[in-house]
Design a protein around this nucleic acid. Structure first.
Lengths: 187, 187
DNA sequence: CACGTAAGTAGTCAGTTGTTGACTTACTCC
DNA sequence: GGAGTAAGTCAACAACTGACTACTTACGTG
């Protein structure tokens, strides 16, 4: 018989959050049930409701408090090194299957509330953070185009597994990304 | 009382396909049930199984035989006008809520079979079609980076509704896209 | 050492999903 | 006009989902 679980509320909460992040990054929000999450966390399903109240609140918290959104990178990296740094940040995150803004973005829920959350996080980090560092008009649009490119790369690489992008070395991709972003970074 | 439905197998099939395309482009594959589709088509739900055998086969056919994948555009448009032409193609399609490769890509299913299908269509159109027109090494990768950018734009604009990209005029976006793609199109 | 409370569990409910089988009805061809 | 078949309908299934209630047990405090 299964030995009774050690009682540790904080650890249980964290286990649920971690399992949720892992599963939704692989199977999407609607492809992940509360039972899946609880099982992966080694925890009773009811505890989802004890600690979070609802599936949506669990998912929301899992996405919201997940790793860095890259805001630090955006604020501190020299402008001309930024595209490369952001690319690496994205590729690392998806490799580690950590759910950050990007992979959450790719898990592409149909839940409006969650989409709003992801949009908000993304805009806070990029449209505001990056645009502030860009000179000239159109700064917000250009900032979003940078993240559009990076999101597209993550989508093709991690979600679809498209041949060329999946096979390419990080360095190759980075070189092209730099050249693509250069005209955006100049005012 | 509801007047009995006219009997027309071909029309019913087509109605189901059309409704499927419309609904999955808005709510995603797993967010759309066979009952939703049938209701939208004004048809009995079980006819999904008479005509297609399973939900997956219906969705597969809906995505597979859906509009142009842009292959014609890729084959015939002068290289330097291509980014703009493709961008307009994508934006038009999502505006008309036609399910083409791009919006299917964005509906981002967790079903492996469907992902394979979308990947195949995309690669057929881009990695092959576009890469063939690019000189120099790396052609396949550069082709996929073009579609990555366009996919990212569609994702942010249609799925997330990010502020700057949603508000920007088509012409503004096109101008930036051209500048971003230019280094990729040159060998 | 009690003992109250927080942590964990079992069982279940109502709703939805994909799917199936048996039924009825309309239309076509002889 | 009557049979045969294709088209459409109905009711129900088993599995799964998010959610809830009632019960049991571990553990720190007094």
């Amino acid at each position: 018989m299964p030995e009774p679980r050690r009682r540790d509320a904080a650890a249980t909460r964290e286990a649920l959050l971690g399992a949720a992040r892992d599963l939704i990054s692989r199977h999407g929000v609607e492809g992940t049930s509360t039972r899946d999450i609880a099982t992966a966390a080694g925890v009773n399903q009811t505890l989802v409701y004890r600690y979070f109240g609802s599936k949506e609140k669990l998912i929301t918290e899992a996405i919201d408090n997940s790793g860095t959104t890259g805001e630090k990178i955006i604020a501190e990296t020299p402008l001309d090194e930024l595209p490369r740094a952001l690319l690496e940040h994205i590729l690392d995150a998806s490799a580690a299957r950590r759910t950050n803004s990007y992979s959450a973005l790719l898990s592409s829920t149909n839940d409006d509330t969650l989409r709003e959350l992801v949009r908000g996080k993304l805009e806070k980090a990029f449209t505001v953070g990056l645009a502030a560092r860009l000179a000239g008009p159109d700064a917000a649009l250009r900032a979003e185009l940078v993240i559009a490119l990076l999101s597209g790369i993550a989508l093709l690489r991690d979600k679809l597994g498209t041949k060329a992008i999946s096979a390419a070395g990080r360095e190759e991709i980075a070189a092209h990304v730099e050249r693509m972003c250069a005209p955006l970074l100049r005012g």
